[in-house]
């Protein structure tokens, strides 16, 4: 694969800011936050230095996987308005540097996690990197409209890794946290895909709205939001969290469902449709996940 967009006349060395941009810092903030919440919400405490190291490793692994994703998709990114400004399509970085940087980040994150914190957490981190960079980016994304559903697992790993880093084993609670993000991902991404549909269609990525149509995508957003409501309350139901989390999850998920109903039951009014409900659902979905995991942490320390 070669990048042909905007190569500079005289290649400049890679700027560190472009290397940071390669790690998708905005996405990483959610990964770090959910990983940290998993670690804090766990019933056991670890040394603060080791906790910091665990979160650093999760961030490095997520950043490395994101860089691998951008390295692989540089040609596709160049064709899409949303991603054309990234360092690789802009020619501000060469692909070999991007690949090497990604490889070093991924390897360093797994080994540091293993040596410093827990080899089980390191193994799950390695699985999550391979899941995102290979299973999702290379295999599923260009092949099936279910790419987001199955690939959503990649983003669901951080709280599980955080929890395992603290406790050293896997119990039902971190698996439920994994499932919450897994079921949150399709409505989150499909809301975005609905208003950048033309971009995906142009580069041949079989996103759900492109392949199955808008109506089917809207119905599926609704189904996932319906499933997410009871699932988000499970941590409270199984005794992994208390009333503060339970009440927060109920309110947040009901609002998520309400916004999803608005998206699920409407149709695009025409080419000039501003897609406001879809944009609102996408924006709220990010706030939702932050708030839900924040409630889990608050609940851990404040017991009514």
């Amino acid at each position: 694969m070669t990048t042909t967009i905007h190569p500079p006349a005289t290649p400049l060395p890679a700027d560190w800011r472009d290397l940071i941009a390669l790690t998708k810092p905005r996405v990483m903030s959610l990964v770090i936050f959910t990983g940290l919440c998993g670690l804090i919400a766990a019933p056991e405490r670890i040394h603060p230095v080791l906790a910091f190291t665990a979160i650093l490793c999760i961030a490095m692994g997520a950043g490395g996987a994101a860089a691998l994703n951008q390295w692989w998709e540089a040609d596709i990114d160049a064709e899409m308005k949303r991603t054309a400004g990234r360092p690789l399509p802009q020619g501000r970085l060469d692909r070999t540097t991007a690949r090497d940087f990604a490889g070093i980040l991924c390897a360093a994150s797994v080994f540091l996690m293993g040596f410093a914190v827990s080899w089980l957490a390191a193994a799950i981190l390695a699985v999550s990197i391979v899941y995102y960079a290979v299973v999702y980016t290379i295999w599923l994304k260009p092949r099936t409209p279910q790419n987001i559903v199955i690939g959503g697992g990649a983003g669901a790993f951080p709280p599980l890794i955080g929890w395992v880093a603290a406790t050293g084993d896997i119990t039902l609670m971190p698996v439920v946290l994994f499932a919450i993000i897994f079921f949150w991902t399709p409505p989150h991404f499909w809301a975005l895909a609905l208003f950048v549909k033309s971009d995906y269609a142009k580069v041949g990525i079989p996103m759900m709205p492109v392949v199955a149509g808008e109506k089917s995508t809207r119905r599926q957003i609704l189904v996932y939001a319906l499933l997410l409501l009871p699932l988000s309350i499970v941590p409270w139901w199984i005794g992994g969290a208390h009333a503060i989390y339970g009440a927060s999850a109920l309110v947040l998920s009901t609002l998520f469902l309400a916004l999803s109903v608005r998206v699920g039951l409407r149709e695009r009014t025409g080419p000039d449709d501003s897609m406001k409900p879809e944009k609102q659902l996408f924006a709220y979905s990010v706030i939702y996940l932050f708030a839900l995991f924040a409630a889990l942490v608050v609940d851990r320390f404040v017991v009514i």
Partner: peptide
């Protein structure tokens, strides 16, 4: 615009 030397030094 930053020169190659400046970028390299900063990196």
């Amino acid at each position: 615009p930053r020169t190659a030397e400046q970028i390299r030094r900063s990196r």
